[in-house]
Simulated assay, not measured.
Amino acid sequence: MSGKADWATKDYYAELGVSKDASADEIKKAYRRHARANHPDSNPGDNAKHEKFKAVAEAYDVIGDAEKRKEYDQIRSAPMGGFGGGGFDMGDLFRDRAGGGGGGFSDMFGDLFGGGRQRAARPKRGPDVESSATISFTDAMDGVTISLRLTSDSPCATCSGTGGKPGTKPHICPVCEGAGMVAATSGGAFTLNETCPSCGGRQLVYDEACPTCFGSGRGNSARTIQARIPAGVKDGQRIRLRGKGGSGENGGPNGDLYVTVKVTAHRIFGRKGDNLTLDLPVSFDEAALGADIKVPTLGGAPVTLKIPAGTPNGRTFRVRGRGAKRKDGTNADLLVTIEVQVPAVLEPAAREAVEAYREAMSGKALRSNLFTES
């Protein structure tokens, strides 16, 4: 049902493609022809035809009813004193208000009673979807494409989101009169618009609800997608994949998919920021005398690390370019920390050598500074 405030500015005859003196039968035939050609069930995803369908349904609701048509014709061409005594278009009158800048008869009523019309169903962005994935330490460094099984909210597959039983015809929502919104009193001086509870903002209602979604127009869909996890991702990092979330409504864009990545621990490598870490066991003699030691790298050939004589336990060396990939495409470093190993059991020859070393160092006051008064 259309609000009468709109009648002065809408040419329903032109919308149906009939003359103003067309018979009721001609009007009905024109409506059926347009409805069949533009019905949403026959044109899924075609927003232009959906809008045309709603427009012809609104026109037929008025001029297809004898009483409403009579009243509509009177409003569209009403004689009024003071304007030359002849017929005139009230839409032209109210479009001329305030210097001609107004939006017409219905806009004037909108200004007075809390906002203008909202006829077209606005595109609605699809919901965002959350998921998680567990990948190996190596895949986190190199990047990997994974398969994700997602379940998300989407238009009902049975009714294509209309909310009506397939094969049934919709009509303009009687609660919101096809606006998709209704006025809600906030308790104060202001009136706010909210989604129509009858049609859910879809503007049309069906006499029989969809047996699958029970008229909601929404359902759950399960799908498998391929998601690219970039190189260098960290444990616990949240990756955003644009447009991979829930489906939009009325031509709106899809939502986004957010994937929380869990990275399994590596046997020998760790991570500190974008740098990889490695604890390198060295013997006492290697630390004391110096040595060239081969060090593994992740996914690459080993490198030779030169350990200077007298290297203390816990010292960290940097191997450049062997860490995780940074956002700018360069690689961070590998941090190698020395761990001097003390044998739990000594072979006789080794014990003899250590005792000789102790004897040689016996004159060194290693801890004398601990007992010095400051």
Rank of each mutant, 00 (worst) to 15 (best):
K262T: 13
A287S: 14
D11L: 04
M108A: 14
D107V: 03
G115Y: 03
A350D: 13
G110D: 06
A37G: 03
N313I: 02
R36T: 13
D65M: 03
K262Q: 13
P302I: 06
R318P: 04
I63T: 10
Q118E: 15
G164K: 07
V342I: 14
G232H: 05
G323A: 06
L366K: 01
S221A: 14
L305T: 03
K70V: 02
A183K: 15
A353M: 11
K4R: 12
G116E: 12
E355M: 13
K70W: 02
E58Q: 13
D41W: 10
Q341F: 00
G273P: 04
G110W: 06
D142T: 10
P343N: 10
P230M: 07
P40V: 10
R242L: 11
N313M: 07
K54I: 13
H50R: 15
E51K: 11
S368P: 00
L289P: 00
R318Y: 01
I307A: 08
N193P: 05
A288Y: 05
A324C: 09
G116M: 02
A209L: 12
G101W: 01
V233D: 06
T162C: 02
C176D: 04
D46W: 06
E67N: 11
I135W: 01
G84F: 08
R69Y: 04
E67F: 00
T195I: 14
A98F: 13
V354Y: 12
L280D: 09
